[in-house]
Write a protein that binds this DNA or RNA. Structure first.
Lengths: 337, 337
DNA sequence: TCAAGATACGTAATCGATTAAGCATAGTTT
DNA sequence: AAACTATGCTTAATCGATTACGTATCTTGA
């Protein structure tokens, strides 16, 4: 490997001079700079990130904490898609991405320790149990963090607009004439809580009465549980005319159950999903859903983290709400008149 | 941050002694070792991976090259699922994962340079254009690599058993009585070539004649193109009785087209996918497909790479073929009798 | 002409960890 | 008693890059 030492020998100058020349310091002569840069290029010099990190205490490396209780991890399109855009933005700004986990090899360490161990400059946290003490330790530390879909005091977070999303969905199905609207929701998380609150609030503002049995618990990304919840709803004497599902994947379980019972979509029952993943737009009928802007979320998260790393003084914690977009498909029937 | 220096001061020994005590060298007294280890634990000492990397030339960090021409990148479940298991195995063996890309920040570098820059001990390469000169430079270098679904001479690769998979599918639909079998395949890659060869070979061995217009080109992960190819096949005077699709996601386009034309599955047309992603098992009807064992592929790739890193002498390049499993769903009708 | 300032570069310490080589001390051997 | 060995620890160099500080040379102005 070509190092600064090699260049210094070839150019007959000290290593300090080479370093300064390559980093654009002003106390080096123009000729010397030109000579050194040329030599560096010719010799195929590459800076050694490790040495730089050791000396400067900055690694230009961002940790990503992606852990999922449900073990579907990265295969959840919502997360993989955020990860993808996060990676692009981080790289654009000169940062690499490293996954942070517990227990690396023989070493048992928590997230904070792993982050320090690798000298990551900051961490983006997603998809975990935010009540995990290890997560709390990390966000309480001196390490800059950005959380996704969860707010910690004094920390920056990027949030999908669950309030607005749910409200948009409810308003839309209301506009389509529905008054008996059921909501099958995912497991208890802050995201779920927001959607629930928004669901109730929006219904109330529209003057819709929601019997409590219209709100059914299920799991995210789990068609089976959504299917069961759907069955519950179908057995009611006052069946809803429209069902909102936890997400676009779990809605499949609901649609299967409806088909099994001979209830056709959207003639006999309207349904809507959440997420707006690719799948939702190729299924037939095309899903009416609320598309979360994962691209913007990943981008914002990376951008804000880099800001927090590079301008720790001027950068205040903030909550960034990324709004999405209602995708009007063919699963909600207009029942006006 | 607690360093070896801090421990050495507290214990009244040299830094060398601390390092050796923590690393289990034999030339340190048992009492001293015990005292140092206790102090390290009490003080919350964590080794600094950066310093270690610099000194030892080993980072315990694996690069992952995941680039997709189609820009769906990580959101492709096949890859995200491999990545997930690869990550788990690498971490179990004490390695972290870092993404390798071109052009990090201002720096424009190729994959090889990025890998050196970060001191990655090895790279797992997937989902890229394997004819890219930058990829070729990387696999031709001294850096250990493992490629996924592509063979380079003198390099270890982990391959999904596309030959066996296609053969299993064809044999299965044959057993179900089908003789007019069409194959819609993805864009031209080595994976596609293997499936094509296996398709023709298996058909030949079964004595099935395959008119060339039964083999239609489309794209992976693209329901639209599969839909178009399906339309072609349906317009034939000698329609096939069964269509094989590029993957479980693109088959949706085909199924939609069939539905549009009033062709019901599997009564009027049998179909089969490829991949065995989660979706395939929740769709209705459940897809008959060939499940690729992404979990094993990721695990093997990580395991082999770590071997190549840690035993460069004894570790020979090899091709590891990971076989999958036919998932019998409800989309292929038994038309015997 | 000479001191002050500017310019251009070098010296050496530093980041944290590792390790070859060296050196006491105590114990063993002949 | 002299020579040797084993044990246990220290010294100092090293990995590659950065930078505060020092210094030599040249310019400039009075």
């Amino acid at each position: 490997m070509i190092t600064i030492k090699d260049i210094s020998e070839r150019c007959g100058v000290s290593r300090a001079t080479v370093s300064k020349a390559l980093n654009g310091h002003t106390d080096i002569g123009a000729d010397t700079i030109a000579q050194i840069r040329r030599a560096a290029k010719e010799m195929g010099y590459l800076p050694n990130a490790t040495a730089r990190t050791l000396k400067l205490g900055r690694s230009h490396n961002i940790g990503v904490l992606f852990v999922d209780k449900t073990a579907c991890g990265l295969t959840h399109e919502y997360f993989s898609s955020i990860l993808d855009s996060l990676k692009v933005e981080a790289e654009r700004r000169g940062y690499d991405i490293t996954f942070i986990s517990k227990d690396i090899g023989e070493f048992s360490m928590d997230y904070y320790e792993h982050t320090k161990y690798r000298n990551c400059d900051g961490v983006i946290i997603a998809s975990v149990d935010f009540s995990d003490p290890a997560v709390i330790r990390l966000v309480s530390s001196e390490i800059p963090t950005v959380t996704l879909d969860f707010i910690f005091d004094n920390r920056t977070s990027v949030l999908s607009d669950n309030i607005g999303g749910m409200s948009a969905l409810v308003n839309y199905v209301y506009k389509m004439g529905h008054r008996r609207i059921a909501f099958i929701h995912g497991e208890d998380t802050s995201v779920t809580q927001k959607r629930l609150i928004s669901f109730h609030k929006t219904c109330a503002s529209l003057g819709i009465h929601v019997p409590e049995y219209y709100v059914q618990p299920a799991l995210y990304h789990d068609p089976k549980s959504s299917g069961l919840a759907t069955r519950e709803l179908l057995s009611l004497p006052d069946r809803p005319t429209c069902i909102l599902y936890p997400d676009d994947f779990s809605i499949i379980g609901g649609m299967n159950e409806l088909e099994r019972q001979g209830v056709s979509i959207p003639e006999d029952m309207s349904v809507a999903g959440y997420d707006g993943i690719l799948l939702s737009q190729v299924l037939h009928p095309r899903l009416t859903t609320y598309r979360q802007d994962t691209e913007a979320m990943g981008r914002e998260a990376a951008a804000k983290l880099v800001e927090a790393i590079e301008q720790p003084k001027t950068c205040l914690p903030q909550q960034i709400v990324v709004s999405g977009q209602l995708l009007e498909g063919d699963t909600v029937k207009d029942i006006n008149n």
